[in-house]
């Protein structure tokens, strides 16, 4: 086996080890890399920033713990920005493993900003079959959620008085790690014309650019990079910004592996042809 063939057949455990080291080094020796803000993230920031105190933003926290690393900083930054501006929040968690995480976020930030359930925010919680829930909320939030997450009837919450459906919220932002985003676009935007922006995992990002181009969503945050951009704009949190250095070193290592693999492939093919 010559050098190029060896390069092609490199044991994958070496790759894991090198990528692991590339991730560990910046964790132990943190440094910052510049974060460039894209228009699609700025559009979301500008929209939230334009809201007046007392306006309502609907924040859909539709991700599971496995996607926390990527999208949790987005939800956190938006929630902090809203609380700092006295914008009221209606929060739902339509992913089956999501309610606990949303609750953790709410309890942490409400304590920090001194916000009260039912007055400054309303946490609706989880209901199964998200497509039906999204449709139901278009008629009245009380259809799928007669009570909030804590079992209090929505009618008895001061902030929900007179708030019926999406017509009473200024904007919906869906932070998601699954196909719930599709249903927000198809049912939320398609059926009820909600003004919608989405924050999704890296895997999903490319899929939603056509909707951005067509205006079906007005903003898009993709993966940890999108989250870091939002943190830069809103100055609320820096977890994603810190992670960008790790991301950068790991990406450089992966690019080198790809280049090495391709050199190995083409050179060994050339030898075979000869």
């Amino acid at each position: 086996m010559n050098f190029y063939e060896r390069l092609m057949n490199l044991d994958r455990r070496w790759v894991y080890l090198v990528v692991g080291i590339a991730v560990i080094i910046p964790v132990l020796n943190p440094f910052r890399v510049p974060v460039y803000v894209t228009q699609e993230v700025k559009a979301i920031y500008d929209c939230v920033e334009s809201l007046e105190p007392g306006d309502i933003l609907f924040l859909a926290i539709d991700y599971d713990p496995q996607a926390m690393a990527e999208v949790h900083p987005m939800a956190k930054a938006i929630m902090r920005q809203c609380f700092a501006k006295d914008v009221k929040l209606i929060i739902s968690a339509l992913s089956q493993n999501g309610p606990g995480m949303a609750e953790q976020l709410i309890s942490e930030l409400s304590k920090e900003f001194g916000k009260k359930s039912g007055i400054d925010y309303c946490y609706l919680g989880y209901k199964p079959y998200f497509s039906i829930v999204i449709l139901g909320m278009g008629q009245n939030f009380r259809i799928p959620f007669p009570t909030d997450y804590y079992g209090v009837p929505l009618d008895s919450l001061p902030m929900m008085r007179g708030v019926q459906n999406y017509d009473d919220v200024k904007v919906v932002i869906d932070i998601s790690s699954g196909n719930i985003t599709d249903y927000w676009i198809i049912y939320g935007n398609g059926r009820y014309n909600v003004k919608l922006a989405v924050g999704v995992t890296g895997v999903m990002t490319a899929n939603y650019y056509p909707y951005l181009a067509s205006g079906q969503i007005f903003g898009l945050m993709g993966g940890l990079k999108g989250a870091s951009e939002y943190e830069v704009l809103s100055k609320q949190g820096d977890r994603a910004i810190k992670m960008m250095s790790i991301q950068t070193t790991a990406h450089i290592v992966i690019i080198l592996f790809i280049v090495a693999g391709n050199i190995g492939y083409f050179m060994s093919r050339k030898k075979k042809i000869k």
Binding site: Q66, A69, E70, G202, L224, K225, M243, I246, A250
Partner: peptide, 11 residues
């Protein structure tokens, strides 16, 4: 984009 996502999870 997926590589970015997976590295985020590892990080």
């Amino acid at each position: 984009l997926t590589v970015m996502g997976r590295i985020s999870l590892l990080a």
